[in-house]
């Protein structure tokens, strides 16, 4: 871990007692010019360290919108959002970039890897942006790729990998800066069933190893293995309960 990262951690500790994610009355309105779409109509959400939250709901209900707001990839239209106790609304663009870099790891449905550079270089990117020295970086990237089972594929380009392998690279990339929370938006959406199950296994392992996870999924079998299921319909949370109680 870089000294700089530790410093940041010290200045903004994930205050024990406060949740990692705390959203109050979050709204999001998409203004497409002609019509205004209210994708989130007041969402309250708290996520504590060590949780594995599955977000479910029909298509178009606002799951991705919520996830993007949690990951500070987008700005809410209303409500309050604290990440690690820090009020997001007050942050500058550069501070937001730091939050994305250090606190959040994002796994996308469409992988979003840069196609022409190697798996190693893709995973290394967040570390470069985070100012981690090269030596530390190399060791960290190698360790991560080993961890997702791609130790022998480091120099392959994304196009030379299968879908499942690409998503493993993306997961390794999400873990690069040891984020407080890993967010995944339908990480198996572009995969066949076998690779999908495989990737879900990776997430379960991560959780067992102590990561805090939020995963959007249509797979109820997986959702039931999470610690908590949040169901969204039409921009509102309609149910939020421990997974054991899910129907």
């Amino acid at each position: 871990m870089s000294s700089r990262q530790e410093m940041t951690r010290e200045t903004t500790p994930p205050a024990s007692g406060r949740p990692i994610i705390e959203m109050v009355g979050i709204r999001k309105v998409y203004d497409t010019g002609k019509v205004q779409v209210e994708a989130l109509k007041g969402v309250d959400l708290r996520i504590e360290k060590g949780e594995f939250v599955a977000i479910v709901g029909p298509s178009g209900s606002g799951k991705s919108t919520l996830m993007n707001l949690v990951g500070c990839l987008d700005t809410p239209s209303g409500g309050d959002y604290f990440i690690g106790g820090e009020k997001v609304a007050g942050l500058s663009r550069d501070q937001l970039a730091d939050v994305r870099n250090r606190r959040v790891g994002f796994v996308f449905q469409a992988f979003n890897l840069l196609p022409q550079i190697s798996a190693f270089e893709n995973v290394e990117m967040p570390l470069v942006f985070g100012g981690v020295p090269p030596k530390v970086r190399r060791a960290k990237v190698a360790e991560l790729l080993e961890r997702v089972g791609l130790g022998d594929r480091m120099d392959h380009k994304p196009t030379e990998l299968s879908g499942g392998q690409m998503q493993r690279v993306a997961i390794a990339r999400a873990l690069a800066m040891d984020p407080d929370i890993v967010l995944a938006d339908e990480p198996t959406g572009n995969l066949d069933t076998t690779s999908g199950t495989d990737i879900m296994g990776v997430f379960l392992d991560l959780w067992k190893q102590g990561s805090t996870l939020v995963v959007i999924t249509h797979d109820m079998a997986l959702a039931r293995r999470a610690s908590r299921i949040v169901e969204i319909r039409d921009g509102r949370i309609v149910s939020d309960r421990p997974a054991e109680q899910a129907a």
Partner: peptide, 15 residues
């Protein structure tokens, strides 16, 4: 798109 991905990973616009 590439810039979007980089920003999602924590790149600052200045960089």
């Amino acid at each position: 798109k590439e810039i979007g991905v980089k920003m999602a990973l924590g790149a600052k616009s200045g960089a």
